[in-house]
Structure formats: C-alpha cells, structure tokens
Design a protein around this nucleic acid. Structure first.
Lengths: 187, 187
DNA sequence: ATTGATTACGAACGATTGTTCGTTTGCAAA
DNA sequence: TTTGCAAACGAACAATCGTTCGTAATCAAT
C-alpha cells in the first residue's frame, strides 16, 4: 500500500473544490479542511493558490496538445484525424472529469503571464484543428459550412461528457458522439 | 431621447462585469465604478448582489421556456420542433450574448432556494427536449443513439454562439449550425 | 538518543468583501 | 419658494480573503 504524496492529495481536492464552487469562491480554508489541515499548513506544499490552477490548466493543455501530435503522426486523412480528435477529447474527459471541468471553466482566473500563455496554447490548438477541417473541405470530404462554425460546434459539443455522462459504456459513448458530430460534418 | 432607467443600466453593466470576471470575482465596487457611482449608492436601486444574478438567470430561463412553448404549439413533427429549438437558442444567444454567458456559466452561484428552482426549471426544459428526441427515434426519423447523448451534444454545441461567432451573417450561422447538428441526428 | 529536515500549527497581517446607516444632494411637485 | 422624496454619498461594519511568520510537532537517518 503506497501512500499518495500529500501534494497530490491537495491538488485533487482542490480540483474538486474549484469544480464545485468555482475558483474565486473556493477558499484556502475550505481546501485545508478537505485535506485535514489548517490553511497555513497548505503553504508547506504549495506556493500560492493560483499555482494549483496553473498546474491543472497547463497539465490538461499538454494532454490535448500531445494527443494531437500523436494523431497527426498516426493518421493522414482529415476524416480519420478528426475522429481521433473526438476520441481524444472523450477519453481525456472520462479519465479525469473533475480536472477537465476546471480546465474548461476556470482558466480565465489565471493571472498574466500565465493567462496569455494559456490563451496562446489554445489558439494554436484550435488553429491546427481548423487546418484539418479546411483540408477536409478542399478535398471534398467535409461539407462547406464556415470552418470556424464547424470547429466551434464540434469543440463545444464535446464539453459535456465530463460532467453529465449518464453511465454509458465508454465504447457506446465514443460511437454515439462521433456519429453525431461527424454525421453533421461529412458530406 | 429617452433616458434608460438607472436600474437597467446597472443590470447591463453587471452582466458585462460578471461575464468578464465571473460572479464571485466581480465586486460591487467594480460595478459601481462602471456606472459612475459609489458602491453604497447601488443599494438605492438593488437589494443585494445576488438579486442581479437572479434576474439574469430567470429572465433567460423564461425566454427559453416560453420559446419552447411556442415551438410546441406551432410545430408537430419532432424534426421541425428540434430545428426550431436550434434557431431559438441561436437567436437568443445573438440577441443578448452577454446575459446569456452569465446565464450559462454563473447560475451555480445562485443561493437556495433560487438555485434549486433554477435547476428544476432547467431539468424540466431538458426533459421536454428529451421527449422530442425519443418521439423522433420511435417514428424512425432520428438515429438511435442514446437519447441523453444526443440531447447533451446538441445543447452544448449551441453554447459557443454567444461568445465566439466571428461575424457571420445570422442567417448563414443558423443554416450552418442546424445542418451540423441535425446532420448527426437525422437517420 | 540525537540530529536535521519536513510538515503542521496558531496568530496575525493588510486587503477586500457585501452591506448598513445617517446625512447630504438633486430634482419635481405644490 | 417650500416641501418631500429619491438618489448619491462617506464612513464604517463585521466577515472573510490569501498569505506570512515564528514555533511546535513529526519522523527518518544517524
């Protein structure tokens, strides 16, 4: 039986707390109570509150970016790439729903320069997906809706899995969602 | 030239502030500054901070519910109803993007009993949409994905219009989005 | 048993929070 | 011009915020 490092316990409890109350409304005293500490003791493990948010946001950003790297190595057709992206989002959401919620909803409370960096990362990620969509349109595989409309519709439609999925088998979920999204994009 | 009632000016500035900073991080002194008042003066017009959030949330909830009422009077087929719901969401989002953002993202900061009431309203709304989807599936017009999966995918995919739409003509936007969503749902 | 480092603590800090209160200002009706 | 009411204000309230600091407890290695 290996004991989890306290630092990790704190990060996980913080993610749950941020999810429930939102970052701003979550107090360090709340967080301390959840890990059986006093607020001041937290600072033996972390430097500041925002540091927790930073880790949550950038760890998840890295997951998406590295996932996309692999996908673009592995698949060449826009359709296969897009389907793999859908699976990527679903798998990440199912693997750590709490942390993904914070990543999705609380990033705006990052302070500069982290906020700027985060926005830049996301913009790059979205641009790469946009390129895939445009390539699919050029080769006649995708319908010719406005590319950013297709992108945004796809991305946001993947943002409910983490907090609402009703206990479906992951495999059924992946199949259903990819059918719903790609059904609207494929020509 | 009619002057806007100060109360309304406050509500609109509050919506923008809540959108930018989030409800919890938005202070009454921030809000006061934006309407050229001191914080204490706000209380000549409102009773408390949460009252503003309540109005934003329930006003928008009413728009959706009444919109759905009209739709179900006007259309009978599940497909026509669902398309009309898509248009409803887009039109509301385009009409008042700021207030819709707050409605979408900040409702969780309502206090009981308003929080409970709000959740109940939303649950009822979603149940009515679920019934439409199930009816469409029974009559063979919709694919047989898990109904809640179809519902959630559709609803969340409608939640980017308010903050990201790149200046498309509303008509093109309506056409593209409904094609994307319905393309995945229709058999 | 002694050391040394890590972890936990209570107390307190200045800052900011939402809100109240008594008073003053501004304006419209009389 | 006087009256009366709504709007705006400064000052202050208790509460809570993130964080710091000096000290005490804990624990592993010597």
């Amino acid at each position: 039986m290996v004991r989890k490092p306290k630092k990790q316990v704190i990060y996980e409890a913080a993610a749950r707390l941020f999810q429930e109350k939102g970052y701003s409304a979550a107090s360090m005293r709340d967080l301390a109570e959840r890990v059986n500490l006093k607020a001041s003791s937290l600072y033996s493990h972390i430097r500041k509150k925002e540091e927790i948010l930073q880790k949550i946001c950038f760890d998840n950003a890295r997951r998406f970016l590295e996932g996309l790297d692999e996908i673009q190595q592995q698949f060449s057709s826009p359709l296969a790439q897009l389907e793999a992206v859908i699976f990527l989002h679903i798998d990440i959401a199912l693997d750590d729903p709490t942390s993904i919620t914070v990543f999705n909803d609380e990033w705006k409370h990052l302070e500069d320069p982290y906020l700027k960096d985060f926005v830049k990362l996301r913009k790059n990620y979205e641009q790469r997906l946009l390129d895939i969509i445009q390539e699919g349109q050029s080769s006649g595989v995708f319908t010719t809706v406005t590319p950013t409309t297709a992108l945004n519709t796809m991305l946001t439609s993947l943002r409910w899995v983490h907090y609402k999925h009703a206990g479906d088998e992951p495999e059924k979920l992946r199949k259903d969602i990819s059918a719903l999204i790609l059904g609207g994009i494929k020509v």
